[in-house]
Simulated assay, not measured.
Amino acid sequence: MHIDLSSKRAIVSGSTAGIGLAIARGLAAAGAEVVINGRTQERVDEALHLLRESVPLAKVSGIAADLGDAAGVASFIQQAPDTDILVNNLGIFEPKGFFDIPDEDWLHVFEVNVMSGVRLARHYARGMSHRGWGRVLFLSSESALQIPTEMVHYGMSKTAQLAVSRGLAETLAGTGVTVNAILPGPTRSEGVGGFFAAMAQEQGVSVEQMERDFIAEHRPTSLIRRLATVDEVANMAVYLASEQASATTGAALRVDGGVLRSIA
């Protein structure tokens, strides 16, 4: 299968590192003109440098904006008014026991993880429908279906993304615009890597051992028995952004290494 996105423009939110950066790299390698996003210009510039090194002919640009609130999204849209492909990757997480999560943390996680995608999709999907072609992707998580007790607020936000994704897909039925969600499992991204590194240091073990222990204890149903790589998740996103995925919409596709014990 040859995926050619050379005539398409793509936006990837929260894409200066991890899964977002890998998706931006994959889209750029397929020929898309890609706009990346981060909260600071320094982070955006670093990511652009990495993209141009790994994909020498990449057509990439970046916008520094905090998409975790309405004002940040409005600023971003003003600088990038249209796109053919929208990847809602921005997300935050924080391990914290249910009884220790205050109201402000619940609201902040919802604002960043859910409302950033709602606001971006509300603007960009309208233009896609008028043009008769478009792709909207939400980076959810296996935690949407298997809520982690160590961060219920995060799981809640990922479940909400599935509802938004399916609802928007039905709203756009027959327009040529597809809307899908991706459910990664535990993935070796920058944020997760830092989380494991801190835990490993606290417990006096290697990061590799920490990752193995986490899978064995917290995700024992994993069939690959390891963390996924960011590129493995990005490959699914690039496919869903392509013309070849034109009959896939309203779906939640798993890249979870078999963690979820379900055949559907």
Rank of each mutant, 00 (worst) to 15 (best):
I19Y: 04
N37D: 01
T16S: 12
G20A: 05
I23R: 08
I23H: 03
Q78C: 13
A65Q: 06
N37P: 00
G68F: 09
D66M: 01
R39W: 13
R52S: 10
V60H: 12
L21M: 05
E33R: 05
F76Q: 11
T83S: 07
R25N: 07
L67C: 03
F99D: 15
V55F: 05
V87F: 04
I77R: 00
S13A: 10
Q79Y: 06
H49W: 10
Q79E: 11
L50V: 03
V44Q: 08
R52N: 11
E33H: 01
A17H: 13
A29T: 11
A29N: 10
K96Y: 04
Q78K: 13
L57D: 14
E94N: 14
G14A: 09
A74H: 08
S75A: 15
G62C: 08
G18V: 05
G31L: 07
L57K: 15
A30W: 00
L86D: 00
G68E: 10
T40H: 05
A17Y: 12
A71K: 12
Q79H: 10
E42C: 09
E94S: 14
V55M: 03
I23A: 06
A30C: 02
G72I: 09
F98E: 06
S15K: 06
V55T: 07
E33K: 01
V34P: 01
I92H: 00
F93K: 08
F99L: 15
A28V: 02
P95L: 13
V73E: 11
A32P: 10
G20V: 02
A24T: 01
I92D: 07
T40S: 15
F98V: 11
V73Y: 12
A70Y: 11
T40L: 09
S61N: 14
V55K: 09
L57S: 15
L48G: 00
A29K: 12
G18N: 09
G62L: 04
T16I: 10
G97Q: 14
V87K: 00
F99V: 15
D66V: 01
I23K: 05
G97M: 14
F76P: 01
I85F: 01
V55R: 05
A47E: 04
G62E: 05
L86W: 07
R43H: 15
V44R: 09
R43I: 02
A65R: 02
I36D: 02
A80H: 11
I19T: 07
G91D: 04
I85E: 03
F99Q: 15
G31P: 04
N88T: 02
A24H: 04
S75I: 06
I19P: 12
G91T: 01
G18K: 04
A28S: 13
A71S: 14
F99M: 15
G14Y: 10
A64D: 12
S54A: 14
Q78R: 10
E94P: 05
G91L: 08
V44P: 04
A28L: 07
